[in-house]
Design a binder for these strands. Structure first.
Length: 94
DNA sequence: CCCGCCAAACGTCACTTTCA
DNA sequence: TGAAAGTGACGTTTGGCGGG
């Protein structure tokens, strides 16, 4: 994979809100600063959201794995029990 | 040491879902 | 219905480990 010189998400004007990225010398710079600040806030929130999302997913997967382990044990026990009962039955009919 | 490789964690974007 | 939160996908970074 090619390593981009400047990753897209580090480019200053990347995906600024509509009508802001191309601010010319004639337009005041404040809206640009506001938009940048807004973008930074959005990125920060999303960063944290992504972390939380991964944490929850990891926890969920761990729960599922625990459940699998429990069910596998139950299954083993039941198979063993069935074997025992079959043995008892066989001895009775003999 | 210094690589190359791998897995896990990360940041961002784009899209979806939720909720006031 | 629009803003905010949640999440899948993708590319990047990081840290550990074995082999030369």
């Amino acid at each position: 994979m090619q390593f981009p010189l400047i990753p897209t998400y580090h480019r200053i004007n990347y995906h600024l809100p509509q009508g802001v990225a191309g601010a010319s010398a004639h337009t005041p710079m404040k809206p640009v600063a506001d938009a940048l600040q807004k973008r930074e806030l959005r990125l920060m929130k999303n960063r944290e959201a992504a972390r939380e999302c991964r944490r929850k997913k990891k926890e969920y997967v761990k729960c599922l794995e625990n459940r699998v382990a429990v069910l596998e044990n139950q299954n083993k026990t039941l198979i063993e029990e069935l074997r025992t009962l079959k043995d008892i039955y066989r001895h009775k009919v003999e």
